[in-house]
């Protein structure tokens, strides 16, 4: 199987803290790959590493066979035209209408006439169900609509890869359902490759073709939804079932409570 993104033995540190310690993962072309893990382990960081916004301390990130890490700034910008990212907040430009937001990448990177741009934007907005909201400003949109508008912008240039940063976080059940449907349908219809970073287990298990579970700076489990559900790793099971205590401890590392109260710290 061909892979669009390959991460090879990657180590990343932020200040003194190690975020990733030698992880490797592959994103197959045309599929939806999910990366799951508890919050605060740097799942967004992984997407930024794929997009070349951050550089790893060790290891390599390859996009379509070319190393993002050693690329010149110019070719990095060229490569980024083939990928897009849906940010958690949507990151719409607040000083532009929904229409102008979606038209933005087209106006920046192509020399299409305004007529053609208007047609493309209408089609993209139709795909996410927001053609009627084209003239609204981002501040007038609900959270779910903002994310869909951002999705329309993300597919404006027909990218090869689209990265979703927590697409389901903070959504009501209806928007959640809409987003799940959109991610699956757009992936198949536009022949995209999707990477979804999330901690919403149920949604991901229904749409992801392949799943990686990150915890404790490394990958603790991978496989199809079925393989993940049947995994015998305690850590994976704790994560899937949402148990409060287990291999991921309930308590942040601290000294013993009793000793601390008795003054053993001092």
């Amino acid at each position: 199987m061909e892979h669009l993104v390959e991460i090879d033995n990657l180590t990343f540190k932020r200040a003194e803290r190690t975020i990733y310690d030698g992880i490797s993962l592959k994103v197959p072309k045309g599929k939806i790959t999910a990366v799951m893990g508890p919050s605060g382990i740097g799942k967004t960081t992984l997407l930024r590493l794929m997009g070349g916004q951050l550089l790893p301390d060790k290891g390599d990130v390859k996009f379509d066979g070319e190393s993002i890490v050693s690329m010149s700034r110019k070719s990095l910008y060229e490569t980024r035209r083939r990928m897009s990212m849906l940010f958690q907040s949507g990151a719409l430009f607040t000083d532009m209408s929904v229409f102008d937001n979606v038209a933005f990448p087209l106006r920046e990177h192509t020399s299409l006439s305004e007529d053609i741009i208007a047609t493309i934007v209408a089609l993209k907005l139709q795909a996410v169900g927001l053609r009627g909201a084209a003239e609204l400003m981002p501040s007038e949109l609900s959270g779910g609509m903002a994310r869909r508008a951002a999705l329309a912008r993300a597919i404006a240039l027909d990218p090869d890869l689209i990265m979703f940063d927590e697409p389901f976080a903070g959504q009501d059940p209806i928007s959640m359902g809409v987003l799940v449907k959109l991610i699956r349908e757009l992936n198949d219809a536009l022949n995209l490759t999707s990477v979804v970073v999330t901690h919403d287990v149920t949604e991901v298990l229904t749409i992801a073709d392949y799943i990686y579970i990150l915890a404790d700076k490394r990958i603790i489990g991978e496989g199809t939804a079925q393989q993940i559900k049947e995994s015998d790793s305690e850590l994976v099971q704790q994560f899937l079932k949402g148990k409060a205590d287990g291999p991921v401890p309930f308590h942040y590392p601290a000294s013993d409570l009793k000793e601390s109260f008795l003054g053993a710290d001092k």
Binding site: Q53, Y77, R80, R81, A91, L92, F93, P105, E108
Partner: peptide
């Protein structure tokens, strides 16, 4: 803070 700068970078706009 609202990731607009990051999203510009990811859209290959400096």
């Amino acid at each position: 803070a609202t990731e607009q700068l990051s999203s510009l970078e990811m859209m290959a706009v400096d």
